[in-house]
Design a protein around this nucleic acid. Structure first.
Lengths: 206, 206
DNA sequence: GTCTATATCGGGATAGAC
DNA sequence: GTCTATCCCGATATAGAC
């Protein structure tokens, strides 16, 4: 038997992440969080003022991480294609590495009280603005074709976020392979519907 | 003042949809559902055996509608491109028309007890299988390029589902225009990253 | 810093009158 | 078919000892 040397604060937050992700915020009790952390429910209140504070902490830490990384990627001098790759790579890596945390961010916004909700939604808007600015840059450079930046950003963010739902570390694909596939789908088309001329040409080559 | 002629069953379910979507299943009380439906909480139990039954009813009705429509679209003799269009058109139209209902389906699976969860997840798997079968058909016909069918289906479903989050009826775009944009993004690429030869060619044309 | 004990509240569901 | 009244439970959070 090894003892668990993590601080109580860390163990409490880890337990909250696990339960909020599996059962949802409202279905998770402070008693159960405490049980998993190995303490009594009342002891949580020495470290955190409320259950809501646990949720806010989880969301803030990881939204800040997502934004800070993206700011660093976009902020330095760059080649557009590489920058685009790094941006979505960051999104997919964080969402798969911290799957329960980002799942909570995506599903428990409504469990926040109005003040906290505003703060977290502001971080999400910042992230979307950064992504949209990057796409805008590519369009202005003529490196990507003209498109509705907002719609494209929402579509890409949605499909990259969803990766975390099915990705299994140690499975058929590594995360780097998944990133490569998604980058290809985003920049070269998901399905590549061929017109009749293309189909005829391909048949001729056989 | 007009009286509300809908049956009690309908009013109860509509109230449940509204509250489950806005606050989540566990954060919505039977008392509040009853208040919105204009009756007492105890009266709900004449129409539905439990709160869980309300959730199951909402999910089943709309997943069945989604599947039934798609089966009809795929089942009849068809041109592949048109069929693909109709399939995603069905997805986007239902998800925007019944936005709260599908939002509940997407976020409250974990609120179902194990037996009900299995039943609903089975309907979702059926839907994914139908979409994947369609993509497989297109690949075998050579109408779309070789791709990982599962990954492509997950990516496309995710981006089409997300439309409901930002789409506003009466806004800048009609739902038909949105469907057209998404069909283009899916079949012709979201961003269309150009290589250097293409950029040079475009410059030459100016 | 963690405990036991408890205050206080609101939840789902039921009984039985009308 | 809807009501009032209520049971019973588990929730968050606090008080105060150690």
């Amino acid at each position: 038997m090894q003892q668990d040397n993590r601080s109580a604060r860390v163990k409490i937050l880890a337990a909250a992440v696990q339960l909020f992700a599996e059962y949802g915020y409202h279905a998770s009790s402070m008693r159960e969080i405490a049980r998993i952390a190995g303490i009594q429910a009342a002891s949580i209140y020495y470290h955190y003022p409320s259950k809501q504070a646990l949720l806010v902490e989880i969301m803030q830490v990881h939204m800040n991480q997502l934004n800070t990384n993206l700011e660093r990627i976009i902020g330095k001098p760059h080649n557009f294609e590489q920058c685009l790759y790094d941006a979505f790579s960051n999104h997919i890596i964080l969402h798969t590495t911290y799957k329960p945390e980002f799942f909570i961010i995506d599903t428990e916004i409504r469990a926040l009280d109005p003040e906290n909700r505003g703060r977290i939604l502001c971080l999400r808007d910042q992230y979307e603005d950064l992504i949209q600015g990057l796409l805008q840059e590519g369009m202005e450079q003529g490196v990507i074709s003209q498109t509705d930046v907002k719609i494209a950003s929402y579509a890409i963010i949605a499909m990259c976020t969803e990766v975390a739902q099915w990705f299994r570390p140690g499975g058929r694909l590594t995360v780097q392979q998944v990133i490569e596939i998604y980058f290809q789908m985003i920049t070269k088309g998901l399905l590549n519907l061929k017109d009749n001329a293309e189909i005829a040409e391909e048949s001729a080559h056989i």
